[in-house]
Write a protein that binds this DNA or RNA. Sequence first.
DNA 1: GCATTTAATGATCGTTCGATGAACAAGATC
DNA 2: GATCTTGTTCATCGAACGATCATTAAATGC
Lengths: 215, 215
Amino acid sequence: MNGTAMVGTERAGARLETDRRRLPPEERQQQIVDTAVRFFAEVGLDGKTRELAKRLGVTQSLIFKYFETKQDLIEAVYARVYLERISPDWPALIGDRSRPIGERMSIFYRDYGSRIFDHDWMRIFMFSGLAGAELNKRYLNHLSKTLLEPILEEVRMAAPNTAEPTLEDLWSLHGGIVYLGIRQHIYQMPVPGDPQHEIDRAIARFLRSFDIEGP
Amino acid sequence: MNGTAMVGTERAGARLETDRRRLPPEERQQQIVDTAVRFFAEVGLDGKTRELAKRLGVTQSLIFKYFETKQDLIEAVYARVYLERISPDWPALIGDRSRPIGERMSIFYRDYGSRIFDHDWMRIFMFSGLAGAELNKRYLNHLSKTLLEPILEEVRMAAPNTAEPTLEDLWSLHGGIVYLGIRQHIYQMPVPGDPQHEIDRAIARFLRSFDIEGP
DNA sequence: GCATTTAATGATCGTTCGATGAACAAGATC
DNA sequence: GATCTTGTTCATCGAACGATCATTAAATGC
């Protein structure tokens, strides 16, 4: 199970797969982080460096050539995993009043779901949250400020002035959607085959309760 | 740094409250489980028995007099914590058609919330879920069968025959409510001071989206 | 082909883990 | 107050942990 690219020199295939492979440092470092993401997502941040090394097919000591401490490796895993979860396009999408709010929310949560309904992300986010990492709070605060609050404003614009939605209402909708991923990847329960359909239903119910047409 | 053992009042020969105390086995066992619940909820199931012993003010070896292995202790923690979370009264409440469905759901989730919006429970449930414990699945399946499905039936009874709610709709509502506790106890974020108010809003929105009057 | 550089290994350090068993002492009974 | 029971401590085990460092061998330049 060698996942990485073979190096240019192909010498008549006499090389054993268990050979000691010499990778460019940058490539090796990336490989370690890749594997560490999957590894820590499975077993938790208390996963042992020896087992990680076994998955990598290298010795445990090699890991410490690329990361001074285990904590440094974990930080690299955080950095890797927290990228790719937030798109800079979302604020523009949310504020695009040429489209109905239901459509905007549907597209947003379709994209959002495709990024966070991910085994590794879900579990590492939960592990780090339980460990008290500051990253989770920063992430959620950022989410609230740059996405939920703008959505709230747009929903208010679209709603007849009867009863106004609150930010907590949006957190509730958000929680209901995220809970789909929690059921699947944390509790490992079966979930509906088409999450987007459930998400659209949740959005439609939300908007309908404020007399707004859904997606 | 260790504040457990030292004595403040120096009455030589007098009864020292922090002395090595000899407890009835039943009492000691209960005390260990009590402390272990709080301890594991804080640091996770990988918490070390020596640190737990320090909190108890006893030696580490004493723990193994009452529990053959650490895993046995964890099972005892599970058993302790999973009790008290489900009331036998709920099915009768949910099926009581002399009251409007909104009121029944409000009362149910008020009681449910008072039981699960708990620091120790929330975290241990999440830790054990991440560890792949079978208990979580059993708990959630039980919840679905004995509570969510009956609620679904009652909501359908109360709804005009326009659009029928699904079980997934109820999971979505449930997730939105539970997410309040997750934000508070897992991510340690500030949450609204009156959770019941938010819960009632969520229920009202849910029912309203099916043209039913809320609580 | 030989010297140089440097990934990667292998052996090992000091520490800490869960767990064990002998020794000790608190409390009841007589 | 001597005796007995047993809750608790003390000392320690082997395994496993993160981390270190001298050694080995694959790539590179001359």
